[in-house]
Design a protein around this nucleic acid. Structure first.
Lengths: 173, 173
DNA sequence: AAGCGCATGTAAAGGGTTACATGATTGC
DNA sequence: GCAATCATGTAACCCTTTACATGCGCTT
């Protein structure tokens, strides 16, 4: 994240509450030790110190090279380790009414989330520096989040149909 | 997973290479200690011992109640902590050709994955006990995986358009 | 002077992966 | 007898979360 410009641990913490945090949450107990580690490894450096003990870090050339190496050379992990999907595997253990209710709520959560990120995307589209690569990356990530939540919303509707009452109906054990 | 019937650690390990493993991978070093822990807590019990030290576990009433409690009472985690999305946030650090290539490959990976799970889904649809709740749950989880990979494939195509050449073009720093 | 938000840390515990390690049975 | 597969485990390490803990500076 420091490749976008210098920042303190506190700055990063707040940034993690916005776009990147939607995708990869992190809180301060993870951030501060990691900044220390990266500094020891020479991938980032203290760029300035401010009031209230504030330390601002900047990425080094070695750090930038390492990010680029990671992006270009490491294998992509395509697994979908999503808790709602795990739940869906075992949802049959609940009584039919509870299944119905659960999927209903899920569908509505997903639609809310999709709407929230659509707003964020609109804000990005409006705000400055519209054609920069960095901006377009952020926008692309947001687009993925929007599409995935939309897909999950439609899936929850579909699942409700599929799980719904049936002739035979083995129920919840 | 033992709510579907008794199984040994080895059985579970293999099952994790199939449908549940697509969603929540786990390997044997996680499985065996966990079986020990669950047994100590009375949520599962040794149902039988076979040759080659094989121990088959079955879920207890307390265990079943605990799964149901988890499904019904705990908050759902809706975050999308997906590595490809994290990568997309920083992809602008690569040169345009590399971005193009990366997104191209991603799109193709997602289409392959979607196709693979469509086959699995077809196998489930064909195979026995077609209307059972358990079967329908598995099928629903597979449907989610298929739809998500399909959505990611289309997103990668879209992102390629969006990231592609532009008048201004701040490039990779 | 009190309270808020800025700012940084540590400790303990849980979850997950990789590597190391071994024993038992079956089929060729 | 040998290889493959069944079957189970441990150790070390990394990542993440929750809880505990503290100090600084501005505003009212």
């Amino acid at each position: 994240m420091l490749s976008e410009g210098p920042a303190s641990g506190y700055d990063l913490m707040r940034r993690f509450q916005e776009v990147p945090g939607a995708i990869w949450p992190a809180q301060h107990p993870q951030i501060y030790p990691e900044l220390g580690r990266l500094e020891r490894e020479g991938l980032i450096e203290v760029e300035s110190e401010g009031s209230r003990r504030r330390k601002s870090y900047a990425i080094t050339d070695a750090g930038l090279a390492e990010v680029q190496r990671w992006l270009a050379e490491t294998d992509v992990d395509h697994s979908l380790r999503l808790q709602p999907l795990l739940r869906s595997v075992f949802i049959w253990l609940l009584p039919p009414e509870a299944i119905h209710q659960h999927l209903q709520r899920e569908a509505s959560s997903y639609r809310n989330l999709a709407a929230r990120y659509r707003l964020m995307a609109a804000a990005v589209d409006r705000s400055g520096d519209p054609g920069s690569s960095h901006q377009r990356s952020t926008r692309a990530a947001l687009e993925a989040v929007i599409r995935l939540y939309a897909a999950l919303a439609e899936w929850a509707d579909w699942a409700q149909q599929t799980m719904a009452g049936h002739p035979d109906g083995q129920t919840h054990r």
